[in-house]
């Protein structure tokens, strides 16, 4: 069981208080109608599924219900940190750059 820090409740809590909410920072095409089938299909279905560091969303369902970003290692389960979605996004974009 993971121990995840909720950036809103500002406390490390056990995994059972949270619900996994998928990969973080997937961009929804701004004008879906203009996206071709391949682009749209990629957005709906394709996920990174990396072996290593992964930016993901967790929701504190048994707590404040907020969704936030977690950077987690999929092999070691190490958690580098958790951030509000906005704070995490800045860091995420810097990493991607």
């Amino acid at each position: 069981m993971l121990v995840i820090t909720c950036p809103y409740c500002q406390e490390a809590r056990e995994e059972e208080e949270f619900s996994y909410a998928g990969e973080a920072y997937i961009a929804r095409p701004a004008v879906p109608e203009e996206a071709d089938d391949a682009t749209w299909g990629d957005y709906v279905f394709h996920r990174k599924n990396p072996r290593g560091w992964h930016w993901e969303q967790w929701q504190h369902v048994a707590g404040c219900r907020k969704v936030f970003a977690v950077k987690r290692h999929t092999v070691t389960y190490e958690i580098a940190g958790s951030w509000t979605l906005a704070d995490g996004k800045a860091l995420y974009l810097k990493e991607q750059a």
Binding site: C9, E17, A62, G63, C64
Partner: peptide, 9 residues
């Protein structure tokens, strides 16, 4: 604190 007891929040 909001948490889980058994299977209930």
């Amino acid at each position: 604190v909001s948490t889980v007891l058994g299977k209930a929040t």
